[in-house]
């Protein structure tokens, strides 16, 4: 009997493909962002408002992941920018290979910004690097301010937390200060913003964050 010590990443194959994507994004100066939240927190509506406020010559594209349906790609496709649906057929997350395949035929040289909407899930997408520059976690005010404590994996990795649906704050007990305190307890460097994609409140901050040339920390 002998014990062989090892240090091998279980998701090493995904990490390898993600590293390849990250190199390609860097070579073409494409900023890639991975949006993660539980189902229905408002990822697609925020992306719709984002695309809707870009100038038509903005070099942006979107990949959107769902287990079933191309509903989100249909919603996002109305704004004149390239959009592709990734249907995972059961998988609860996107992985780097899916992103790599979905990019086939797109000229990265023609893009500055690639927005990826992950499958609605606060757990599984956490483990899979997609080659993104930053993960963004969305938390809607109807979900409760304790979510960073319950799902520390994603809140500890995200560079930005977006509190969504703040137009509903008058109707739900949600302590913004606590949500921020819990998230920063895990991740002191995290950026935080509040917005309502519905009313447009706070969208300016979000657009400024997207445009900022600053590096928001690697995942």
């Amino acid at each position: 009997m002998s014990r062989i010590p090892l240090e091998r990443k279980v998701l090493g194959e995904n990490d390898r493909i993600a590293a390849g994507l990250r190199e390609r994004f860097a070579a073409h100066q494409v900023r890639c962002l991975n949006l993660i939240s539980s189902p229905g927190s408002g990822k697609t509506l925020l992306l719709e408002k984002t695309l809707g406020s870009f100038r038509p010559d903005r070099r942006v594209a979107v990949l959107t992941g769902d287990i079933q349906t191309d509903n989100d790609a249909v919603r996002l496709g109305r704004y004149g920018f390239p959009v592709r649906q990734i249907t995972t057929a059961g998988a609860c997350h996107l992985d780097a290979r899916m992103v790599d395949r979905a990019l086939e035929g797109w000229q990265l040289a023609g893009l500055d910004l690639l927005l990826i909407e992950n499958v609605g899930n606060l757990v599984c997408p956490t483990s899979y690097d997609l080659g993104e520059e930053a993960k963004i976690v969305l938390l809607s005010v109807t979900e409760g301010e304790d979510k960073p404590l319950k799902y520390p994996g994603i809140f500890s990795r995200a560079s930005l937390m977006v509190l969504t649906k703040i137009d509903l704050l008058p109707y739900v007990p949600f302590d913004v200060g606590k949500a921020v305190e819990y998230a920063r307890g895990l991740n002191p460097a995290m950026d935080v913003m509040e917005l309502s994609a519905m009313t447009g409140q706070g969208l300016g901050n979000w657009m400024a964050w997207l445009d900022s040339a600053a590096t928001h920390g690697m995942p």
Binding site: R3, I4, P5, L6, E7, R8, K9
Partner: peptide
């Protein structure tokens, strides 16, 4: 921690 690593194997050699 964030790791998900295979750290050893025991072999019956």
């Amino acid at each position: 921690g964030r790791d998900l690593d295979l750290i050893y194997l025991e072999l019956d050699d």
